[in-house]
Design a protein around this nucleic acid. Structure first.
Lengths: 199, 199
DNA sequence: TCATTAATTTAACAGTGTTAAATTTTTTAA
DNA sequence: TTAAAAAATTTAACACTGTTAAATTAATGA
């Protein structure tokens, strides 16, 4: 019977509605505000209905994660297809990655475990700036006798910090590389940046 | 009266006990398991007592964050003091930063918003490897005609990923740099790595 | 129309952070 | 030492969370 098909189509629609509602809530109020009851409100059902479509809240997050990776893959592939030279391709691909992160900020946070809440905390703490200041000063030393502008140092500092924090984050959430490999990545990155600072 | 002092000292001790208990729970069971009632269990009180010492759960987290930054600052300073040349100092300081991240993993997660839960998710998804594979292939292309080992590509890939993911994370949790500055950091990092790949 | 099945909701449970009231303990003063 | 005042601590409750089972409503097939 065709009505069976229609019902199945409606069910599929509700499945998508749940994902859309979730993402909508997160975009408006952040990840902390996402609750089953709130999702139910948006799709105009009561909470237990959601469990007919997803076995748990985590299952919804997993589906959103998958969605994110598929969009990212599409974007990265499209960026590659726009160029022929590998160097150009690579640059375009990472730029696509960068753009995705901010275009789909909420998905990126979910995919790679970026907890935005902590910024509210650290902002309140003067102590949070001490480590950065220490390193900051040494970068200025390193560039002597040239006296750099604030912006110049800032760029160097953040380049350092990015690669190290990035490597740390990735290791914490993925736990894949060996210590040996990490050491080498670190050395490669740090020496590369130091070299570029001296230029 | 001296008894006043003793009581004040006991109170101060309980304040510290709350922090210690929190960290202990987190180290044993992860951030998700941290609850006021569980903290109370460890310090052998009931939950509302905690509010005599900290105004909220967030206040406890804030205090732990501060603690983390102070330890990090101490470590970084000590690393600097071990060398005289700025280049050596810088290297040692970032290595100290790196070591702190894993020695005080839980604090680092709190300080910089690294959500470890997400790894459980992405691991379940085959789709999560597509973007990496795409970039992986181009790195191999870039190194042609040299045919690199798995490890060689891995190091390049993770160096790229680290700096970009790091920069994204930092921007998301700190929201400080201008787009212009970010562009330049990205360019500096990517071109640096690409250059080192060609070597 | 009646029985069966499906769809949906209500009610409940155990947990969360948090607050107010009740209770116990300790300290102070007579 | 005992009564009153103050402090410390707990119990009970509220509104919220994810989740499940039972009750109810709506739709279907004979």
């Amino acid at each position: 019977m065709a009505s069976k098909d229609r019902i199945l189509r409606l069910k599929e629609e509700t499945r998508i509605n749940i994902l859309d509602a979730s993402l909508q809530i997160v975009k408006q109020e952040g990840w902390n505000a996402l609750s089953m009851r709130k999702i139910a409100d948006v799709i105009e059902y009561t909470a237990p209905i959601i469990y007919e479509y997803y076995s748990s809240k985590e299952a919804i997050l997993l589906e959103l994660t998958r969605k994110g990776f598929l969009i990212l893959a599409k974007d990265v592939q499209a960026a590659k297809d726009k160029h022929r030279l590998p160097a150009k391709q690579l640059e375009a691909m990472w730029l696509a990655y960068w753009n995705f992160a901010f275009a789909e900020k909420e998905l990126y946070q979910l995919m790679f475990g970026v907890d935005v809440n902590c910024c509210e905390m650290a902002k309140k703490l003067p102590e949070s700036e001490i480590p950065a200041d220490l390193i900051w000063d040494v970068i200025v030393d390193l560039m002597a006798p040239h006296i750099p502008t604030e912006d110049e140092v800032c760029i160097k500092y953040y380049t350092f910090w990015s690669v190290i924090h990035g490597l740390i984050s990735i290791n914490m959430v993925k736990r894949g590389n060996t210590d040996e490999t990490n050491r080498e990545i670190l050395k490669l990155a740090i020496s590369g940046i130091i070299r570029s600072i001296k230029d």
